[in-house]
């Protein structure tokens, strides 16, 4: 059974959200609040498994409330349900998300199916969810057989580029734990639990998960060698923009 706290100031939207939530989570215990301050108080007293929260609300905005909640419990799961659809907004939000937290960002303007998917991803699968519309960075990676979803292919591209968890988190606007969870779900899909199986049998870690993922990437042809240059120049411009770090040799183009 999941306990979910819903914080939304517009009653009609709150009712709609609850309806979707009931359809997504059959075994639901519901707590409702209609502004950030009330949400914060109820979070403290009810300790829900997840919180779905609007951002623009009277009394206290969703962002202020989330900041407070995360400062008290850095593992709190919060799914923002907002109308702000700009990447910069999600980026700034990503900066206040603690490394251990799993959070999500769903858009009010998108379909109910997407919202359901977001709820499932965060609440059940323990993964970060950022609506692709706001994610901004578009990767040219080739998605084969519809096997990977957009966020998984984005992480895969970052892994190929050799970024650290922290850097991936920054680039994808999610937490470090969110990155790690995605990598492990990626490994489930590509390596098919080989490493876990090996660890359970041999009693020690035999495979390096990330390297096994790379192996599968090339074996299954997820990416053509020509695509790598594109990925890298995309990363160079991200680095320069966000961190003011010019990659050597990236200026000559």
């Amino acid at each position: 059974m999941y306990k979910v706290l819903v914080v939304e100031d517009v009653a009609a939207l709150r009712q709609h959200l609850i309806k979707i939530l009931r359809e997504t989570v059959p075994d639901l215990q519901l707590v409702e609040a209609c502004n950030g301050l009330e949400g914060l108080k109820l979070y403290r007293s009810e300790k829900p498994d997840m919180m779905i929260m609007d951002i623009l609300m009277p009394e206290m905005t969703g962002i202020k409330a989330a900041q407070q909640i995360w400062s008290e419990n850095s593992r709190a799961k919060i799914l923002f349900w907002s109308q702000f659809h700009k990447e910069s907004y999600v980026r700034e939000l990503g900066k206040i998300v603690p490394d251990e937290a799993i959070h999500g960002y769903a858009l009010k303007t998108e379909s109910d199916e997407k919202l359901m998917h977001a709820i499932n991803t965060v609440l059940v699968h323990d993964n970060s969810y950022i609506d692709p519309i706001v994610r901004g960075v578009q990767h040219a990676i080739n998605i084969r057989h519809g096997m990977l979803n957009e966020s998984e292919s984005a992480i895969l591209a970052d892994l190929i580029l050799g970024l650290t968890d922290k850097a991936i988190a920054m680039r994808q606007h999610i937490s470090v734990r969110g990155v790690q969870n995605r990598i492990s779900s990626l490994s489930d899909k590509l390596v098919k639990g080989l490493d876990i199986h090996a660890k359970e049998t041999a009693g020690l870690e035999i495979f390096n998960t990330r390297m096994r993922i790379m192996l599968e990437v090339f074996r299954q042809g997820f990416i053509e060698p020509e695509e790598i240059d594109g990925l890298e120049s995309e990363m160079a411009s991200w680095l320069a923009r966000r961190l003011n770090f010019e990659m050597p040799g990236s200026e000559k183009k």
Partner: peptide
């Protein structure tokens, strides 16, 4: 809806309110 949001943002930038001047300028 997105048009209204655009106009609203012009009037009173949400980024400035929520995340401060530096973030709003960067946006």
């Amino acid at each position: 809806m997105s048009d209204i949001r655009e106009i609203m943002d012009e009037l009173c930038p949400a980024m400035l309110e929520e995340f401060g001047l530096a973030a709003a300028i960067e946006e």
